[in-house]
Design a protein around this nucleic acid. Structure first.
Lengths: 137, 137
DNA sequence: CTGCCCTGGTAACCAATAGAGACTTGGTCT
DNA sequence: AGACCAAGTCTCTATTGGTTACCAGGGCAG
């Protein structure tokens, strides 16, 4: 009882750069491939069931999908709704909290799609330089 | 010779959600804790040498810092400058390409710092619900 | 002159984690 | 009866992250 909401001390600045800070833990949990792609996919396509999500985030294994989506649910970003039918139907959707994050995540997805040619070109240059240097030596 | 910039076929839409797409590879490489924190830190604090970066991104090991920063350099996001002094001084800074991404990354860092209390509260609620259910059963 | 310090790494080793694939549950369709 | 969904879960292996020890090579204290 008694909402034990720890009124976060303003003297503890919640800094993602601090290893010990709770916000770092949150950041570390979210900053992975699958979590970000799931958020972005839910943002783009809206509510999806498990298998739809697995298709839309192509390449994710059932295990990792379950795990990531569980974490997102636990963190209050995603709502998991079980329709007790047969066969079972489980639908995942963004909660308001998750939507705020997802909006920012999609900007990163967009950046990557827009700039991956440049990145790949840079890689080619880097590897070529390295390679040449090695060959010459 | 002949800038081999592959004019990316508009029929290959560069989709981060596609497992096979090059942009997915780029995304997967960048979407990790350390890479994102390094980009954000370089954006916030500007150029930093290796040890400064290790301090500002607290918790990162030398190995992971080296590895991540090498990848970012290879991808054309970060510039690594070696000053051949003694003791050696190596400075890392954002390139224009990296700056564009870093700007978006910091918005995620800001979101996490602003919303981690809500996330942590959601977790508490989730775990409590689970816990109670288990206890009751 | 000897030896220890400094930075920016690298190599080796070990624990944790991601991925691949079989198994589960239970109702329905053939 | 047997196969077949969906949404997981379990197990086993490959990869990865983290920790420690070590290196170069000049400065400088003794």
């Amino acid at each position: 009882m008694s909402e034990q909401q720890q009124e976060q001390r303003p003297d503890l600045p919640l800094d993602v750069f601090a290893a010990f800070c709770p916000s770092r833990e949150v950041f570390a949990e979210l900053a992975d491939k699958w979590s970000l792609l799931i958020l972005a996919s839910l943002h783009r396509l809206g509510e999806q069931r498990f298998s739809e999500l697995q298709r839309s985030v192509s390449g994710v294994s059932r295990k990792m999908l379950t795990q990531s989506v569980r974490t997102l649910e636990r963190d209050g970003l995603v709502l998991r709704t079980v329709h007790p039918e047969v066969p079972p139907r489980v639908v995942y959707g963004l909660l308001p909290l998750g939507r705020g994050l997802a909006e920012r995540v999609v900007t990163i997805g967009d950046w990557v799609e827009a700039n991956s040619p440049a990145v790949i070109a840079a890689r080619a240059g880097f590897d070529e330089g390295r390679g040449t240097a090695c060959e010459v030596a």
